[in-house]
């Protein structure tokens, strides 16, 4: 069974991609409080700039408003959420229960993640779940939608949750040679779209896409490239040295470093301004370049704690106005 026009979920993101547009998604981190205004404020920066926003699920294992609750608030604010769900916090019962609730409340995109380990967050002494992994979660979402089947095999009576199913990919994580195969597994499991880890290393990503095209995966799933503006050289070095699955080439760091050349080293504000402007410029150029790569269907913009950057980025890359489908 499917909705009108053979759409799987009828989400805006799905329609944009289906219509052949270059898609743009953003990111919205729920507050570490029960404050709905926080979401409204962030939506203000993102509305009209992106086709959908990822609503993170206790990101970096820090407790926040649930991705379900925040997604519903996003729907109410008139922006389409991509609800994230980790395997860290829920077993298969809780996951499916939340799928049902999310669909009933108007959420149409779901992103399956294994989740950051709790040792990274603010409750390191907790127990994790990991009943299933993200691959199995994708399969479960697909079975619910296309077979009306719960994970246990029981057939659902009544309305099934229909999501546009998303998955993550880390093209530069190790072993690098296995990454295209891993993507193939996610596609086989049922991923309709993919959002990649942040890409700064264009040559490495192009190589990955070459393999992906050989396996014709780009024809079966929509690949959205993770991009994010650097705030300065320190951020680039941090990503390079401490975030697994991200490489930042020397020339990228050199370029952002050079942006503050000639500025009085004591003038921190001026340096920061120069770096940030260059970071946005570099990101725009990157978007324009990945757009030309065959098999890339869109970008996923991650401006971490820097939502104001989204507009100049998307605008600068010539991706405005967003299509109405």
């Amino acid at each position: 069974m499917s909705t009108d026009n053979g759409l799987k979920s009828g989400s805006n993101l799905e329609k944009v991609l289906r219509a052949g547009h270059f898609a743009v998604t953003g990111e919205l981190g729920p507050p570490q409080s029960a404050d709905p205004d926080h979401i409204k404020e962030k939506v203000g920066y993102l509305k009209g700039m992106v086709d959908a926003v990822n609503v993170t699920d206790n990101q970096t294992a820090v407790v926040r408003m649930s991705s379900l609750g925040a997604s519903v608030l996003a729907v109410q604010e008139g922006i389409e959420p991509v609800m994230q769900m980790t395997c860290r916090d829920r077993n298969r019962l809780a996951m499916q229960a939340d799928f049902l609730a999310a669909h009933a409340l108007g959420v149409r995109n779901m992103l399956a993640l294994s989740g950051d380990h709790q040792s990274f967050g603010n409750h390191p002494t907790s127990k994790n779940v990991h009943d299933m992994d993200s691959m199995q979660q994708i399969r479960m979402l697909k079975d619910l939608r296309d077979e009306k089947k719960f994970q246990c095999g029981d057939v659902m009576k009544g309305c099934e949750p229909r999501f546009f199913i998303g998955a993550a990919a880390a093209p530069e994580a190790h072993p690098v040679e296995w990454r295209p195969m891993r993507l193939a597994k996610k596609v086989a499991a049922g991923a309709d779209f993919i959002q990649t880890q942040l890409v700064y290393n264009l040559p490495a990503f192009k190589k990955y896409m070459e393999e992906v095209r050989k396996m014709r995966l780009h024809e079966k799933t929509a690949i959205l490239v993770g991009v994010g503006p650097l705030k300065g050289p320190a951020m680039g070095k941090y990503m390079r040295d401490f975030v697994p699955g991200i490489t930042v080439p020397d020339d990228v760091i050199a370029r952002i470093e050079a942006a503050a050349k000639g500025i009085d080293p004591e003038d921190k504000a001026a340096k920061q301004k120069a770096w940030r402007a260059e970071g946005i410029k570099m990101c725009i150029e990157l978007i324009q370049e990945v757009k030309e790569i065959e098999g890339v269907a869109g970008v996923h913009v991650m401006a971490i704690e820097w939502e104001e950057a989204v507009k100049p980025l998307v605008e600068g890359a010539g991706l405005l106005p967003r299509p109405v489908v």
Partner: peptide, 21 residues
């Protein structure tokens, strides 16, 4: 595996090490 992943390796694998210490 820190996350008991059944279809690994996850995106946190780098240089043979797990992202979880």
């Amino acid at each position: 595996c820190s996350k008991q992943v059944q279809n690994g390796p996850c995106g946190g694998s780098e240089h043979g090490l797990c992202e979880v210490k």
